[in-house]
Design a protein around this nucleic acid. Sequence first.
DNA 1: CTATATCATAAGGTTTCCTTATTGATAAGA
DNA 2: TCTTATCAATAAGGAAACCTTATGATATAG
Lengths: 301, 301
Amino acid sequence: MNIRNLKYLIAVADYHHFGKAAELCFVSQPALSMQIKKLEKSLGVLLIERTNKRVFLTETGKLIVQQAREIVCRTEALCETASQLKDPFCGELRLGIIPTLAPSLLPRIIPELSALFPKLTLYLAEDTTLNLLKKLNEGHLDCALLALPVEGDFTMHALFDEEFLLAVPIGHPLAKQTMVNFADLADKTLLLLEDGHCLRDQALAVCHSVNAVESKKFRATSLETLRYMVAAGVGITLMPKLSCRSNDGVCYLPFKTLPIPTRTIGLIWRRSTAKKILLTHMVEHIKNLSAVNFSHANALL
Amino acid sequence: MNIRNLKYLIAVADYHHFGKAAELCFVSQPALSMQIKKLEKSLGVLLIERTNKRVFLTETGKLIVQQAREIVCRTEALCETASQLKDPFCGELRLGIIPTLAPSLLPRIIPELSALFPKLTLYLAEDTTLNLLKKLNEGHLDCALLALPVEGDFTMHALFDEEFLLAVPIGHPLAKQTMVNFADLADKTLLLLEDGHCLRDQALAVCHSVNAVESKKFRATSLETLRYMVAAGVGITLMPKLSCRSNDGVCYLPFKTLPIPTRTIGLIWRRSTAKKILLTHMVEHIKNLSAVNFSHANALL
DNA sequence: CTATATCATAAGGTTTCCTTATTGATAAGA
DNA sequence: TCTTATCAATAAGGAAACCTTATGATATAG
């Protein structure tokens, strides 16, 4: 048995076709057929049932393929480990991020990160927390930027706390204040995001603690929609600080009452990742950036 | 990279010597040297520092070897899976068993099991529960016969309940009774096994529930020692039913009071074992054997 | 300074593996 | 029923990988 054998087997398992599997493996069909046969012989079991029109795995084959995938996956991880140890700041990094953070945070950190890690290719994926965790576990992502805490066996590093501000239309009675109390929100109705966004749950928690309620008529699909709804005078909402802007027809009021509602933004990754060194450096850099750029004074772009 | 490469690397990591590692791998030293060099080149990192007198792993090498061991281990597991699927009742089975069970149970099941699985080679290892669990986890054992429940992520199957009987010397006042009550034990002193035996803990639990106490002067290293001490009139003890004999100078009294003190004997294995089929068959056979042979009527040999 | 131990290198042969061409078997269509 | 298309197996020859033996280089010990 060798790793190539296993890769060929997995290709056949994925394509149910020797020819296509061979193509995928960049070898000729007979070469692949022969290797599969050799593997079967060395294991002493039939892995694939071949008829001329149909190729499918035996029950034994399914179990073996399952283990083969694990092995191939680990060999790739080994290579990745070596490559990262050679140069931790080189290669690719697949970064997941939640939609309520991406448009506001990325422009503030990507330019600096690109400059700091010029040999690094960054791939970005925007998705909900639940999907990000899934993709992380499946190895499709290397790390994720999201609101802590999350469930799962990940290494988690808090980066900064992001305040929530109350967003009201310019003409709103509260817009005359410079700050807002919890009491101001009592029995008010807030516009929130639709299900799936972690921000929705955090906002609901705030609602609960100040005796506000969610609007039953409307659930937004994005923060931008939410902002336009507020600007249009439909209602008020909570907005994370980094997403607050000036001169957009909305008035953002910071909270005066302690504890100020916030969410903690963090970077997480699989404990077993090969990119530990790069990622811990990245945490430090983002922490520094946030301290300098997202501070109270200049958080509003 | 291939599996052979990794095996060679692991051998060097284990022996810190190219020549000896090569011998272990049944190849010449240059062949091994070349493969290691090839691996280093393909990974792009230095794995081993060579001076003419000393061979040692780089920090990178240590991390890579760690992963290599995992991979090689899994390839062996894959082979084992195939072999077990080909013939589940063939090959080797490494069975662990606790010392307070081995001498009494094995003679009652090994002959039948040998007959049922003639192509199976059975290796037996006697050790305490803690050590058995460790060896199971490390892959040095395939399964273990012990008292349930145990801590850990294992598949567990109860086989039978084994009663505890009170062992008293023939001349003892209680020896005149045919059975014994919990009340008979109140404030009595019992001889127990030394630390490490699960039976000790179970006996202590019984002591606690009947207000008996442990003898402070003596702790036995085995059930046999315990039996001799009782026969010599030093004290009384609890004896698991399968270890009770007739005509050995000791009188074994069953408990009359409900619930009769017992321990549950079970077979456990790693959830990921390749020998699932064999082991589940074995569970059924031992259950049947226990129903037929360890029943109340003929438990005393 | 010599001997020894130890890993690296070199040259040549063996084995493994791959490629192209072809065969054989089966299912679908005429 | 015969033909055709599809697809995996087989065969033969060449390329690559790998191993072996012999030799080289270098550091340590005496």
